[in-house]
Design a protein around this nucleic acid. Structure first.
Lengths: 214, 214
DNA sequence: TTATGTTAGTGTCTCATTAACACTATTACA
DNA sequence: TGTAATAGTGTTAATGAGACACTAACATAA
């Protein structure tokens, strides 16, 4: 049971948000190209805390939904050296975005979750895995609400689902399904947003909580 | 980005098998009580390899299905010390069992996956999580085949599913579903096992491979 | 003031899937 | 030859999912 010659442990976070009807991720500048937010563990710090802290420090984002994704153990330069990375993904509500990058220490950028050429390949793999996980969770949980602002219309929620899944959804079937879940409620207000009929505004009944379906 | 004061990384494996119509796990003797197989990483070893190696060394089990479950970071005795454990679960086919514990170095025992009083609470939590993950995967994958011997009857496969789910299944619906998946085939042989009609024997079409449904 | 463009909002029908259900077949053994 | 035990087999009803088109309400421009 000899320990390894050398081992490092870090967290990597894939911060997702919907911006301009696209699924984007927030990345941090590094000498060559960009990387996911993340880093090593502080003294006495646990994994979730470290992931959350690095996200905040490097991007300025506050409290967001954070979920562990997978742990990778990748050999690095130098025989006997292993870099262990615990990957997370975060869901940033629209609206928490503006404050984010501005307050950050490092240089950050939002990039498309599907154009990952500027990321190292291991980080691009993590983003792909996170995207698939997120898409599959749409089918059996209310996780999409974590990407929404406090108040939103049903059309906006549908657009978020469509963006993540990469396919259009039927408007009536979508509304039926969502309302049957009993996870959102009308606020009574309307969104007046231009030359057309105003939309009802909704909010999550249990914000911050992700329910599983059935 | 200071590193932690102290950090250990290890793997823990939940080795499941079906024995006597019960879901059981294989545990290893330790000074007080029992623990899951597992341990720290060797030089240059990656996570999956380490989990597999510890399982083999401590239990004598050979090649089995192994899947990463979750990574826990738990503070330990001593401030600033974190024990990171990457948890896996393994599915041991009936038939690979006999050879297992016999050839092992450490003292091992099979115990019920539902009576975990002899395990430390963190290990018991891992077993519970693994059990839930396994049960949910039954619904959308052919993972149950990894617990079966090379040849088996449909009734045996049904019993395995029922044991994991903890509820009875309808015989006709089960057979329809499984056969429609096109994941097993009849060998042509019959299981003659006592005072009743013999059952057809089946085998996995793609042993070692887990297919996802739909 | 009226017409036009734009998005919001609403039900029904069809098809596919799932769930419930009971009897005959084949063997070992008494 | 009868009995006990498990293997094997279809149909029907209920439920859920998917396809589908029109009216409502507002802003703006003519």
């Amino acid at each position: 049971m000899a320990g390894p010659v050398s081992l490092t442990l870090s967290t990597d976070v894939v911060p997702f948000a919907i911006r301009a009807e696209r699924l984007e991720i927030l990345v941090v500048r590094q000498p060559a190209g960009w990387r996911l937010p993340g880093g090593s563990l502080g003294a006495g710090e646990n994994l979730d805390t470290a992931a959350s802290r690095h996200l905040t420090e490097q991007t300025g984002l506050g409290e967001v939904y954070l979920e562990q994704l997978y742990t990778f153990g990748r050999p690095r330069q130098g025989v006997g050296t292993l870099a262990v990375a615990v990957a997370y993904y975060a869901l940033v509500p629209t609206g928490a975005l503006a404050a984010g990058p501005a307050a950050s220490g490092a240089a950050t950028a939002w990039i498309s979750a599907e154009a990952l050429a500027d990321l190292r390949s291991d980080h691009a793999d993590i983003v792909g895995l996170a995207h698939r996980r997120l898409a599959s969770k749409l089918a059996y949980s209310t996780i999409a609400l974590q990407l929404m602002p406090e108040r939103f219309t049903l059309s906006e929620l549908q657009a978020v689902n469509e963006t993540i899944l990469g396919e259009p959804l039927d408007k009536r079937n979508f509304r039926k399904r969502i309302l049957a879940l009993d996870c959102i409620e009308a606020t009574g207000e309307m969104a007046r947003s231009g030359g057309h009929r105003p939309a009802r505004l909704y909010r999550a009944k249990r914000p911050g909580q992700v329910d599983f379906i059935k």
